[in-house]
Design a protein around this nucleic acid. Structure first.
Lengths: 242, 242
DNA sequence: CGATCAATTGAGTGTGTTCAATGTCAGTGG
DNA sequence: CCACTGACATTGAACACACTCAATTGATCG
């Protein structure tokens, strides 16, 4: 897994052209010239310790962030005062999109583990876009993608039972390359708590626990601590497609 | 209620500068020059009869649409083959945003009543944006708004019971100026079927029917055919804030 | 007027929730 | 090293709410 190394600690400006963060990030969509212009506006941020806030809802919206290394959850308060975990973000993901057009951020962003970010000041980003149209087009596409993602979550969580919701969630994590495969076994190291997962899936922690228990009973997963193992990934996929 | 009149039938190009469609549309955010440039790329479409498709999922994504007059639902198939109504759109709303970055549209768009649209070919829109940055900025903001809207629906439908879901839905329609107020009474003329509402809210038609019955029982609404009346709007608002 | 689709009503079921208790793990300080 | 703490995870029993299936009424249109 290609990671941007130590460099990040010694330079103020990020050299996007060398950053290992790739497919989800802006990099792969921009020509070298535009990329350089973006890089010059971007800043290194980190490390953020697990549990610390990247930004909070009270903060004025100024920047988008790309995760260089680490993991983040976003959460916002419900009417009843409780927090709802609206998303999990990992290496290469862009966060803050849902705050565009608002004065403040739309959620708190909390590091789940030690995390480094690439900060993209939004005003500067738009200025760069004005002279490098490709950037605007790319951002627009990312936003479209983000809408589709929200809509997909809506459907998953509305019409599926707890077990399927969890399996779909795990699959989405695997698709984001969070799984480690060794000896034919697929293992997923969850950076977030089960409670966070429950909140994100619209379930109670108890329901998640029980659903995981049932899945384990059926031999589809092995659930121990913060890792989930899939002894037979094909059975899981079969389960999902029915 | 300001409507763009007859004009729309006789001209090929839309004169956005005169169209009554305003607050949600691009118009109010663009300076006259940019607006003119957009207007020159835009086309009148309509009338579409109730039940007819503006576009379908098989169609290549080429344009966004602003609703000049009428109402539209968007729906996409679920894994079980059934259709899910993902949204309702009215006068001034922009549709197609969630298809940006895809080859085809992400949903079918169906007219709920006789409907006229203003078509905005997306490629041309981006070209105009390249010379009028304000357009890109506006579009970006609309997309941010759209994400927040999806996320809000997610929360509403996940954590609220059927009755509250319905009331929140009605309120959102009122906020979009679909309600008529006369003699202190607030009346909502629904252009869509109860079944569509059920699908959109993630409920069964039976559940919607029963929930409406209970709300009527409690005197919060009056439910007759395709109109909902609110004898006492304050009680509804009180109900929602608890 | 009959056909069709939407809306309603009823009875019984199921899945997730609620509330409360117990169990597990990591960190802290004696 | 072990006892204590606090957060998280698990388990059980009773319950609530929306779902399913089925039947009936109502509206609309040919």
């Amino acid at each position: 897994m290609p990671h941007a190394p130590n460099l990040r600690l010694v330079r103020e400006h990020l050299d996007c052209t060398r950053c290992g963060t790739c497919p989800c990030c802006l990099k792969s969509w921009l020509d070298p010239d535009t990329l350089r212009a973006v890089a010059e506006t971007s800043l290194i941020r980190g490390p953020f310790a697990a549990g610390s806030a990247i930004y909070r809802m009270e903060d004025p919206f100024r920047s988008l962030f790309v995760i260089e290394q680490g993991a983040i959850k976003t959460e916002s308060p419900l009417d009843d005062g409780n927090l709802h975990v609206s998303g999990f973000y990992f290496h290469g993901d862009l966060i803050g999109l849902d705050s565009i057009g608002e004065h403040c951020y739309n959620h708190d962003a909390i590091a789940l583990e030690q995390t480094w970010l690439c900060e993209l000041p939004f005003e500067k980003l738009e200025s760069v876009g004005d002279t490098h149209p490709q950037l605007h087009h790319t951002l627009t596409r990312q936003l479209g993608q983000r809408i589709r993602n929200s809509d997909a979550v809506l459907l998953r969580d509305r019409y599926q039972g707890a077990e399927k919701r969890l399996l779909l969630f795990f699959r989405s994590l695997c698709e984001r390359n969070l799984a480690v495969v060794e000896r034919g076994r697929c293992r997923l190291a969850l950076p977030m708590s089960k409670t966070d997962i429950a909140s994100h899936l619209g379930l109670r922690p108890e329901s998640v626990s029980r659903a995981l228990g049932r899945l384990q009973q059926r031999g589809l997963i092995r659930n121990h601590m913060k890792t989930i193992e899939f002894p037979n990934i094909d059975r899981v996929l079969a389960e999902l497609s029915k």
